[in-house]
Simulated assay, not measured.
Amino acid sequence: MKPVVGAMQAWSCTVISAFAIIILGILGLLFNAEHPEMVGGEEDPANGHQVAVTVFIAVLIYAGFLVFCGIQGVLHMRESRRGAIAL
């Protein structure tokens, strides 16, 4: 199997996706707990659970990017070990 994207793009996407999963996961947990700093205060009517669901969907999308880009990076490593010429 041949890689679809370049090695630098694959590893950059992997690192950015990992950080996005961590940061969005923390934000999603705070919205789910309806933390006052996230929903605007205790007296404001807010629906933090719906926001948390949306944020967790974004986490799933970034997890898909992480898997895809990680596989692309591994394919580049495997190809370079076989002596392939990188253009």
Score class of each variant (00 low, 15 high):
residue 28 G to P: 02
residue 3 P to T: 08
residue 46 A to P: 08
residue 16 I to D: 12
residue 34 E to P: 03
residue 37 E to G: 15
residue 69 C to D: 01
residue 56 F to S: 07
residue 23 I to A: 07
residue 23 I to D: 02
residue 19 F to Q: 04
residue 50 Q to E: 11
residue 86 A to Y: 11
residue 43 E to M: 15
residue 80 S to Y: 09
residue 24 L to W: 13
residue 16 I to W: 08
residue 64 G to K: 13
residue 14 T to A: 10
residue 43 E to A: 15
residue 31 F to A: 02
residue 10 A to F: 02
residue 67 V to E: 09
residue 51 V to P: 06
residue 65 F to D: 15
residue 76 H to C: 06
residue 61 I to S: 06
residue 53 V to R: 15
residue 12 S to T: 13
residue 79 E to H: 08
residue 18 A to S: 01
residue 10 A to C: 02
residue 26 I to F: 10
residue 66 L to R: 05
residue 20 A to H: 07
residue 59 V to K: 10
residue 80 S to P: 00
residue 56 F to L: 10
residue 31 F to G: 00
residue 49 H to C: 02
residue 52 A to E: 00
residue 60 L to P: 01
residue 46 A to Y: 11
residue 44 D to Y: 10
residue 2 K to P: 13
residue 9 Q to F: 12
residue 70 G to Y: 05
residue 12 S to P: 05
residue 55 V to D: 00
residue 75 L to W: 05
residue 10 A to W: 00
residue 36 P to R: 11
residue 12 S to D: 08
residue 2 K to S: 14
residue 9 Q to Y: 13
residue 77 M to N: 03
residue 82 R to S: 15
residue 53 V to M: 15
residue 66 L to G: 05
residue 57 I to A: 14
residue 21 I to G: 07
residue 25 G to H: 04
residue 70 G to P: 06
residue 84 A to K: 11
residue 71 I to N: 05
residue 7 A to P: 05
residue 52 A to S: 10
residue 84 A to Q: 04
residue 2 K to L: 12
residue 25 G to V: 02
residue 69 C to K: 03
residue 18 A to Q: 00
residue 32 N to V: 03
residue 3 P to K: 09
residue 40 G to K: 10
residue 34 E to S: 10
residue 33 A to C: 05
residue 9 Q to H: 11
residue 36 P to T: 04
residue 27 L to H: 05
residue 84 A to H: 11
residue 5 V to H: 01
residue 56 F to P: 06
residue 43 E to P: 12
residue 21 I to Y: 10
residue 32 N to H: 14
residue 73 G to W: 03
residue 28 G to N: 04
residue 54 T to R: 04
residue 22 I to P: 00
residue 27 L to T: 04
residue 30 L to M: 09
residue 53 V to Y: 14
residue 76 H to R: 05
residue 52 A to G: 03
residue 47 N to C: 12
residue 67 V to F: 12
residue 47 N to M: 09
residue 27 L to A: 10
residue 4 V to L: 14
residue 35 H to N: 06
residue 69 C to T: 07
residue 24 L to T: 07
residue 36 P to H: 09
residue 49 H to T: 09
residue 59 V to Y: 10
residue 56 F to V: 00
residue 10 A to L: 01
residue 15 V to E: 09
residue 46 A to D: 06
residue 80 S to T: 12
residue 86 A to T: 12
residue 63 A to D: 00
residue 24 L to N: 12
residue 28 G to M: 03
residue 38 M to Y: 13
residue 17 S to I: 01
residue 13 C to S: 09
residue 12 S to Q: 13
residue 79 E to V: 02
residue 51 V to M: 14
residue 20 A to Q: 04
residue 87 L to E: 08
residue 61 I to Y: 07
